[in-house]
Design a binder for these strands. Sequence first.
DNA 1: GATGTTGACTTGCAAAACGCAAGTGGTGCG
DNA 2: CGCACCACTTGCGTTTTGCAAGTCAACATC
Lengths: 139, 139
Amino acid sequence: MKCLKRSHCPIAFALDIFGDRWSLLVLRDLLFKGKRRYSEFMASEERISTNILSERLERLEGEGLITKSRDKTNRRQFIYAPTQKSFDLLPAILELSCWSAKYDPKTAAPPALMRRIRNDREGFIREITARFTKSTILH
Amino acid sequence: MKCLKRSHCPIAFALDIFGDRWSLLVLRDLLFKGKRRYSEFMASEERISTNILSERLERLEGEGLITKSRDKTNRRQFIYAPTQKSFDLLPAILELSCWSAKYDPKTAAPPALMRRIRNDREGFIREITARFTKSTILH
DNA sequence: GATGTTGACTTGCAAAACGCAAGTGGTGCG
DNA sequence: CGCACCACTTGCGTTTTGCAAGTCAACATC
């Protein structure tokens, strides 16, 4: 995937970073599903292939969206964590989810959650970020 | 590009439709820049290639995000227009823009516009959609 | 401390998508 | 009827993706 920026249009800028079929799914796993390890990302239902996952993690780390560190208790494992730059994507990701929930007749998005996002998006975002400030280093 | 849906996770659903480097730029041209013709999309600064543009227009039409019709006054030209499904993407696109404006040091996004979006997103969305309801058929 | 296992990749290769340039075909104009 | 214009389509070389198999360091067990 290309790294050069095509323009400084904000939409093109975002697409040049995660305008592909996988990057946002990795962020989803990190932000919403509490996944933090390579094997956990691999286990997601969309079946990302291992070389793509490793390339995306590297890219996201390079873009400052995630951090990578060794697990202190088991040095075989690496721990990935979202940065503030990822948290700041939450509004966009949630709006995207609302759109899909509206247009996918078979959506897996729980209606109650979607209602929560529509009615109290900021509160929900604070809740998500709070899950991390309690346990991990962020910025 | 694959058409099958990988899952009914709302994020994956959206990515399966426009999770590539070009689709959202076409929608941007339609929604924000008032472009409606093939040659106008081709003229965008990101330099989409002609076969990719035609494939994306076809896909977006297939997904019900845009409509295609012949220009009444000049039957050589086709007119593309966003549907309600596209308008409903505006919140996500605007949040994405805000994110890029924050993180791209060279962003071309006008600060005044970003302020407007942050302070009166709904009003801005109504303004955008109103540009179309005046002139074209939508749904 | 040799042996096996686990977790995180890396490598190889075929298939798909992309990017560029050149060609095609319907429409309108003189 | 000839020509230009606009919207594609086609060919083809390059890049990215997807799948499978292999590598390698870090434990765990014997």
